[in-house]
Amino acid sequence: MKRRRWEVRLVGQGGQGLALAGIILAEAAVRDGKNAVMNHTYGAQKRGGPSQADVVISGEEIDYPKVLDADLLVIFSEAAFDEYHHQLGSRGFLIFDNSQIKRALTECDRVIPIPFADISQQATGSSLSANMVALGFVAELTKLVSHRSLVRAVSKHSPKGSLQANQTALEKGIQRAQSIEDRHDRNH
């Protein structure tokens, strides 16, 4: 890992599986021999309220456990978009689900719209695994965790009924990131 401390913030609403995505990312990092912290904050509601999962990954000890200046800000809902998109710091990337969020935003190198929910819907017949699409996308884009650890962490933490869908969605997310990388390579 080139950078000492990586900060990923996932924001959306309760029920979108952000805590699960966060815990899987952190677990994969631990399996890779890194230090990780996952922090999930949410409102009183089980579904529909605001939900935020912070993941910090480092090769060194993690002191402050929350996000200071997100490297990746991943947004899953319009409400969260309105509340969080301005938090993007000077160096971070903003990734948002443009199948859920209909906001006009100038696309630039640091703003990446990906239709996570639509990809999940097409691949699994349900938009519920949008979190896994995003997870695969983020992991592949950043190379923060190994594929092997990620797959194992998904297996460990997925509820039995959704493991197959989650695995499929994860791979779709990975493929999406690879296609972006390929395009990027061709353009440069």
Binding site: G33, K34, N35, G59, E60, E61
Partner: peptide, 17 residues
């Protein structure tokens, strides 16, 4: 904090808890 480490850890020697 006692969970500190600066050296690479072997796989399986830690748990996310």
């Amino acid at each position: 904090m006692s969970n500190s480490t600066t050296t690479a850890r072997r796989r399986g020697k830690a748990r996310l808890m």
